[in-house]
């Protein structure tokens, strides 16, 4: 029985950080609302990855529990975000978020 090789936590966290940066860049650069929501998903997934990797480092279940909470947040956020997207599409006839840059009042 060989010793189980532990995946270095730093590399997992680095991967999570890179994925988060890609998602953040996507949110800032893209102008299509669907793609902005997807980039938000990437960011949330990166957070979840960081939680799970850090939890696995000490073989604790807490990381996975935080992962489930992130999952809940992602589900609620996507439901509301897609509802808003439908409203924007109905009102402006496009998914370009720059068209919706005026506040009322």
């Amino acid at each position: 029985m060989t010793e189980a090789v532990v995946i270095p936590m730093e590399h997992g966290l680095l991967l999570a950080a890179i994925l988060f940066s890609i998602g953040l860049g996507g949110v800032m650069v893209r102008r299509n609302i669907i793609l902005i929501l997807m980039s938000l998903e990437i960011m949330l997934n990166a957070c979840a990855l960081a939680f799970v990797v850090a939890g696995a480092r000490w073989a604790e279940a807490d990381g996975q529990i935080m992962f489930m909470l992130v999952l809940t947040i992602a589900a609620a956020e996507v439901a509301v975000g897609l509802g808003l997207l439908l409203q924007v599409h109905r009102r402006f006839g496009t998914l370009d978020i720059d068209r919706a840059n005026r506040m009322r009042g």
Binding site: I7, G12, L15, E41, N45, A48, L49, V52, V53, G55, A56, A59, G63, Q64, F67, M68, L71, A74, A75
Partner: peptide, 21 residues
């Protein structure tokens, strides 16, 4: 990401990642 979850020893999180995400 799900495969990474499985590899770091979180099979339940891997299953949830595929099922829900």
């Amino acid at each position: 990401s799900a495969i990474i979850f499985y590899l770091v020893g979180a099979p339940f999180a891997a299953a949830l990642e595929i099922l829900i995400y």
